[in-house]
Design a binder for these strands. Structure first.
Lengths: 338, 338
DNA sequence: AAAGCACTTGGGAATGTTCCCAAGAGGAGG
DNA sequence: CCTCCTCTTGGGAACATTCCCAAGTGCTTT
């Protein structure tokens, strides 16, 4: 690697002290207009770039926020990241992204990296395995702002961004009921994730409202591994009293279910109607198109970023337990109505 | 932010010099076994974490590689990133990811950020707008390794990772011809991207081999903006002599084309057969499923990362013009055969 | 003429590391 | 006893910044 121009180079060249150069470059007004001009010119000419390591070392500012997500493969998290970067970059912040791969140890390692990089704030959605939160508590202890989204830790007193999962699920299931389906199965997520519990509760509430008895045999706990869907669906359909409706915890799961059901020669929605959650791009494209609950994904990222910035700027208490709940929308397609 | 334990804290506590502590922590063997043990214990107890800014400042090592991609929305780039991170993290490198949003200015800004963060290597796929490469040349000038993938700059003498686009396209079009389609349209990418040109050439070569006349009216230049697909397809189908085959530059384009064609009431593949490129997840799920060329996406990321590491470790010349070409595979589905 | 002030500049400590150089202790060899 | 060598340690410069504390100049005010 070649030599980077430093403040010292500029000072030497112009025969002034590095203090003065620093003053110019940091926008300190106590500099003669003439010197200022000369410094700026030379800086430009030599393509001076501040050494962020030296800068961070002395100022303890890094202008970086971190974001940890469980995966990259669905369109959900990439969209959230776009939202975060939109807001963060406007505020002059860089983003460093880590992906835990739904693996707890990786998440812990990622958190270490974020810590080492002295991010000024951390936005995180945990893995489906995450049950302890020491690695994130460490940030609270060091007074580094944290914001959760989507997969949140309810026990930590920090701001969170979610969608109204309960309400969305309620409406999804209600929609199934109103189209005449009374025996509705649910593929539920891991129950250490509060998001799974909220969606399950919405499902239960809808059944209750319409006086439909809850049958635990058709509420299937499922670890979000897509290859588990196939046997689960087969089991459901092999029941003596198989469901005629299905509410899946998310779109990829619903999409996979549709494949399996079609392969068995059943008709959707006549034999069994299906609803997903998220409105991933794919849900409008498959056959039949998928009825689902849409959520404002990019907005989730933007909201999380705004919260982090407020925390960084002390406009909000680090222990604020504010929960921003964004609204969802039922998108009716052909997997529930012809 | 609270105080981070430093090497000095440990030294003071144990009444030894910071040099000795540093020696222990960097693995220098010239330390008495007894002192070493005490230092390590205390470091553990105080949760000592090296300050990477101070460290990078003196060593000029950052253990970071950067990656710039045009977008996050398709599954392609996220998968590449997973591949990169697999290899990089094994070698003890962190990855910083930037997304140019298909915007040239953003790409230039991203490059600046990478430079400022002193990445030890940069992996990049340029935007569809990128026609000049000064912002990347700057890395070459500073002797920072660069590797291109997918959207490469042919004029820069650096290693590159691509798939055999020419061959893949050739086989895609040949497949259409062999299923009886002789009038084959092509939605071609922006021609500043060599990837577009390579795919176009594969298309042309296949036509040539089967003595099919090239008709420029059905080779449509297209800027990869998905909403342009609809009018393009309508125009094609409104021709006095419309195509009965279509080779789209990528899967999202092909998928969109399928929607438009279905909406017009035409039969796929009878009236018009379609081939895409990439084998995105969606291509197996839509109706009809999409015949496409699959590419080893994660492998592309891994290969790029391996190259960068070799460059960093000087096992390869910075100006090596090695091009790793990975192979593709034709996946036949229902958009070309019933 | 002395004092005060605004404006501009330089010096140097501090940030948390690494690493070179020196030096002390203790033992071996002559 | 002196020299030399090994093992272990400490001191301090260097890395590129920021920022506080002088201090110098020239001007106004009394």
């Amino acid at each position: 690697m070649l030599h980077q121009t430093t403040i010292k180079d500029i000072a030497r060249e112009l025969n002034i002290s590095k203090s003065t150069v620093s003053r110019v470059l940091t926008g300190n007004p106590n500099v003669n207009e003439h010197t200022r001009k000369k410094v700026l010119e030379l800086a430009q000419k030599l393509d001076y770039q501040k050494n962020i390591f030296a800068h961070s070392l002395v100022t303890h500012k890094t202008n970086t926020i971190g974001i940890i997500v469980p995966e990259f493969m669905s369109s959900y998290f990439p969209k959230v990241i776009i939202g975060v970067q939109n807001i963060a970059s406007k505020a002059g912040y860089n983003t460093i992204i880590a992906q835990s791969n739904e693996n707890f140890e990786t998440e812990v390692a990622n958190a270490k990296v974020m810590m080492a990089n002295q991010v000024e704030g951390l936005i995180v959605s945990v893995t489906k395995e995450t049950k302890t939160f020491d690695h994130l508590m460490a940030f609270k202890r060091k007074e580094i702002p944290i914001v959760f989204f989507n997969r949140i830790c309810e026990d930590m007193l920090v701001p969170k961004v979610v969608v109204d999962d309960y309400d969305g699920s309620f409406r999804a299931v209600e929609h199934l009921i109103l189209t005449g389906k009374k025996r509705i199965a649910h593929l539920a997520g891991p129950d250490n994730l509060s998001i799974s519990r909220r969606r399950l509760n919405g499902y239960l509430a809808a059944l209750r409202k319409y006086n439909i008895e809850v049958d635990d045999d058709i509420i299937i706990p499922y670890d979000l591994q897509i290859d588990k869907v196939k046997p689960i669906i087969h089991n459901l359909l092999d029941l003596p009293n198989p469901p005629n409706g299905l509410f899946a915890i998310n779109d990829p799961t619903a999409v996979e279910a549709i494949q399996v059901i079609k392969a068995r020669g059943l008709k959707i929605p006549e034999d069994i109607a299906i609803v997903g959650f998220s409105n991933d791009q794919i849900s409008g494209l498959i056959e039949p198109s998928l009825t689902t609950i849409s959520q404002p994904v990019q907005k989730i990222g933007e909201t999380a970023a705004e919260l982090i910035l407020k925390l960084i700027n002390k406009e909000l208490s680090l222990s604020s337990s504010i929960i921003k709940t964004l609204t969802t929308e039922l998108i009716v397609r052909h997997s529930t109505v012809r």
